[in-house]
């Protein structure tokens, strides 16, 4: 399991890294998405650009009521951030599910998002939180909503010369609850089906309801059906209806680990559990 030969450059700063990006280069940070591909020779780049040590891509900063997270921030660093835990407990909760202790020590949030594994845990979180991704190339910078970023399996809105540099999280409304429910594939730990829910309430009524899935299809997706909860109290039977409607008609993945029908069923269960838990959290006083 030895990769093909390539050149390696450790970028001194972001602008260096962006300049170095070109035909058949790959960017490496934690390396946990890329290294297995290299070892199996499924990726055969001419050059690797190491951005893992770039300070400007690391760190968690307050921004308005939200946060800006550098793309090369490791999962471990996310878990160690008190601010993140206070503002987005959902991210902390989901991060504990990613990979394993060693993977979380090395893997980066930006690397995982750009890799866009269709069964990864973090992408649906970004959809529900309505994050914005900053994509940079040597010619400039643009912002893309997470909701328009994930295109398919291992496919994103990133252009070949672009780098995901920052994840921007908007402030959450008051009275919000979030939750993740997932069923793991026993070997890889990736989700067979997972659902992320966000519910905000004001004066006893739901003002916002977002629901996103991972593991079911080619890419994570938001379920429009969640909107049916808005302006209701979110009783159990409605939540179940929403969960069912959310997966209705979805063409689910079918593989050795789970047939499509089972994945859809799990998706529904995960959606119900996540919505129920998010609602309960939103209803909690304080």
């Amino acid at each position: 399991m030895i990769p093909t030969s390539f050149e390696y450059v450790r970028a001194k700063n972001l602008s260096d890294a962006l300049k170095a990006m070109g035909k058949n280069t790959k960017v490496i940070a934690g390396g946990h998405s890329l290294l297995p591909l290299l070892r199996f020779r499924l990726a055969q780049p001419d050059m690797l650009i190491d951005i893992g040590q770039l300070r400007e891509l690391k760190g968690i900063k307050r921004s308005g009521g939200g946060l800006k997270i550098g793309a090369a921030t490791t999962y471990r660093e996310l878990l160690e951030s008190k601010e993140l835990k206070a503002l987005y407990p959902l991210i902390a909760e989901v991060t504990e599910h990613i990979g394993d202790l060693q993977v979380r020590n090395a893997g980066t949030i930006g690397g995982g998002l750009a890799h866009a594994d269709p069964a990864a845990d973090m992408p649906p979180v970004m959809l529900v939180l309505d994050a914005t991704f900053v994509l940079q190339s040597k010619t400039g910078k643009r912002s893309v909503p997470a909701r328009k970023f994930f295109k398919g399996p291992f496919t994103t809105a990133l252009k070949p010369n672009e780098l995901l540099t920052e994840i921007q999280l908007p402030a959450l409304p008051k009275g919000v609850g979030t939750a993740y429910a997932s069923f793991e594939q026993a070997a890889s730990g990736y989700a067979l089906a997972g659902a992320v829910a966000l519910i905000a309430i004001a004066k006893g009524l739901i003002t916002r309801a977002d629901l996103a899935f991972t593991g079911l299809g080619d890419a994570p997706f938001l379920a429009p059906a969640a909107a049916k909860l808005v302006a209701t109290t979110g009783d159990a039977s409605l939540i179940d209806q929403v969960a069912q409607a959310a997966v209705a008609g979805v063409e689910a993945n079918d593989d050795v680990h789970a047939p499509a029908a089972y994945r859809l069923h799990l998706g529904r269960v995960a959606a119900r559990r996540a919505l129920t838990q998010a609602l309960a959290q939103a209803q909690r006083p304080g």
């Binding site: 594939q185 026993a186 070997a187 890889s188 593989d255 050795v256 680990h257």
Partner: peptide
């Protein structure tokens, strides 16, 4: 959880530890 699976063409679908579920401590 452990199962080695071939497809009809004789390709091993559980050919790495990503797909063959050796028990973990947490399981």
């Amino acid at each position: 959880q452990e199962m080695a699976v071939y497809d009809e063409d004789g390709q091993l679908l559980t050919g790495t530890m990503m797909d063959y579920a050796v028990p973990k401590a947490s399981q």
